[in-house]
Design a binder for these strands. Structure first.
Lengths: 204, 204
DNA sequence: TGGTTTTACTGAACAGTGTTTAGTAAATTT
DNA sequence: AAATTTACTAAACACTGTTCAGTAAAACCA
């Protein structure tokens, strides 16, 4: 009976449909306007139908977040592939910062909003986050091996670098920089200047 | 006529009342449970009354945020007053990080949530943020004057330090660290370890 | 094939949110 | 004492996430 297989495919397709609609809503109209009702409207189903595929909005947002991570990891592969470890570290930095500044809604969902993380039970691991983080960890490992940066603990080094870049991006996304009496160009200058400075400071 | 003066005092007192109720709700029940209706309930007025004193929730949250900044600035004065600049920088770091970790709801309102910033018109300056930031700027200025840290631009140095600490705190508050397969103690270790590392890296 | 069960879906409701408005009683002014 | 202004509220509006009873179609079984 290929029926149950087809049904399984249909189920997966429907979930993909919902995710895509949510993602579109999210990136084009902003989070505020991405309600279950509007997502349902977009795929031409009733709002209640979404709850046949997702137990709640948090669970759906977790899947949308997953899509965002796929995009980020692709960018890492394309834009951060130098063999020289420190150059690759710079590329990762650039790619991450630019991803955040150019896709604030996605970045928000991935690293700022609480909602999608509610889906993770305690002691459960954040697979998407860890996978993306692994790129940075590998790079930092190579840098440390060749004594290119002032870190001895790999994980702590990667975490510090992540923390630093996240701080800059999230301050920008959540409107804490421009209100310091800076215009748009000065904000970008501040962020990129900080990164350049930091790379110099951690370089051996 | 003392009447208009008394009315002015009453108005100020009422706003203080509302702010206090909101702050209490916020820190004790969390942001999710701090609705206008519940705040109104707490001060025993109708929800509509709040709109006679604040044009919307964002404006109220901006005032609550102001209270939070008063607390943070007080902490800076008490806990970061060493005369030796680099020691003072360490104290500011510690005070800021601890404030964030111990008062996640306040920190959220001050540096993560979008809502209170909606109140600021474009090109308007964020007074509270700038005042608190000034403490860091002064300290960084002293450090640079005495050639204690690897920065030449004062503002950029202070901004970098702020960004770094904010990154760590906000990743924690928005649940992005513990899901990396870390227990509570390891999270704290990671944060404080990163700070210690960073201070070493920027030290001349 | 016909009858039964399962599946996929929806309309309507519930309980909550921020916010507005019309109406009212009290305080103030004339 | 009458007129006006002030301070406040009940009720509604337009949303939100979510649940549940009901329904038509698909699948299964005899």
């Amino acid at each position: 009976m290929g029926i149950s297989e087809r049904k399984e495919r249909d189920k997966v397709e429907m979930r993909k449909n919902i995710i895509d609609a949510a993602m579109h809503m999210f990136t084009h109209e902003g989070y505020e306007n991405a309600s279950i009702r509007k997502i349902a409207d977009k795929i031409e189903y009733s709002p209640a139908t979404i709850y046949l595929y997702y137990k709640d909005k948090d669970e759906l947002l977790y899947d949308v977040q997953g899509e965002c991570f796929t995009k980020l990891v692709k960018i890492f592969h394309k834009q951060a592939n130098a063999t020289e470890p420190f150059t690759r570290l710079q590329q990762i930095f650039d790619a991450y910062i630019n991803f955040g500044l150019n896709n604030p809604e996605m970045y928000d969902l991935m690293f700022i909003m609480k909602s999608p993380m509610n889906n993770l039970e305690d002691k459960e691991v954040w697979q998407n986050g860890n996978d993306a983080f692994a790129h940075l960890v590998n790079c930092v490992q190579d840098c440390i091996d060749q004594k290119l940066i002032k870190f001895d603990n790999v994980w702590l080094g990667a975490f510090s670098i992540w923390g630093f870049s996240h701080g800059l991006i999230s301050l920008d996304i959540r409107c804490r920089i421009k209100v310091m009496n800076l215009n748009e160009a000065q904000v970008l200058e501040a962020i990129h200047g900080s990164v350049a400075n930091y790379l110099n400071q951690i370089k051996t």
